[in-house]
């Protein structure tokens, strides 16, 4: 399974980011979310949502094997094993592998908890099977 985003439906409200940070870190802090909303204003006037495709490139490059798969099939960061080497960040083709010095001493990513879907009022996000390449 993976998360799919229909950017055309996004209104930029960021409820998903807060819900995400609450699940991942038990904190109200959208700067610590595992998905991204990029506003493009004043022109063309659209939002772009970036989500993890669960491609596994991050796990493939992690030297400590700290990125593992959970029961939902999602790659997640085992925080205790992350050494903050940042090898995963450039490996991510969607720019949704996060490291931010000062905010957390680990890398983080989407673990498919689904809370972002629960709070999105415009049905931008959905879970779906990973399409065959």
């Amino acid at each position: 399974m993976r998360l799919y985003a229909d950017s055309a439906r996004c209104s930029g409200c960021r409820a998903c980011l807060v819900a995400c940070s609450l699940n991942l870190f038990q904190e109200n802090n959208p700067k610590k979310a595992a998905l991204t909303i990029l506003p493009h204003f004043p022109a063309p006037g659209v939002y772009e949502v970036k989500v993890c495709t669960q491609c596994g490139e991050c796990a493939a490059v992690c030297p400590t094997n700290a990125i593992k798969q959970n029961a939902r099939g999602a790659y997640y960061v085992e925080f205790a094993e992350c050494t903050l080497c940042e090898a995963c960040v450039p490996a991510c083709p969607e720019n949704v592998m996060f490291v931010r010095a000062g905010l957390a001493d680990v890398a983080w990513k989407c673990d498919l908890c689904g809370d972002c879907i629960a709070v999105c009022g415009t049905n931008v996000l959905r879970l779906g099977e990973i399409a065959a390449a």
């Binding site: 209104s11 930029g12 409200c13 960021r14 659209v46 009022g121 415009t122």
Partner: peptide
């Protein structure tokens, strides 16, 4: 062209 919501709004 686009719905534009305030912070945390499910009904923009």
């Amino acid at each position: 062209i686009t719905d534009k919501g305030c912070f945390g709004c499910p009904s923009p």
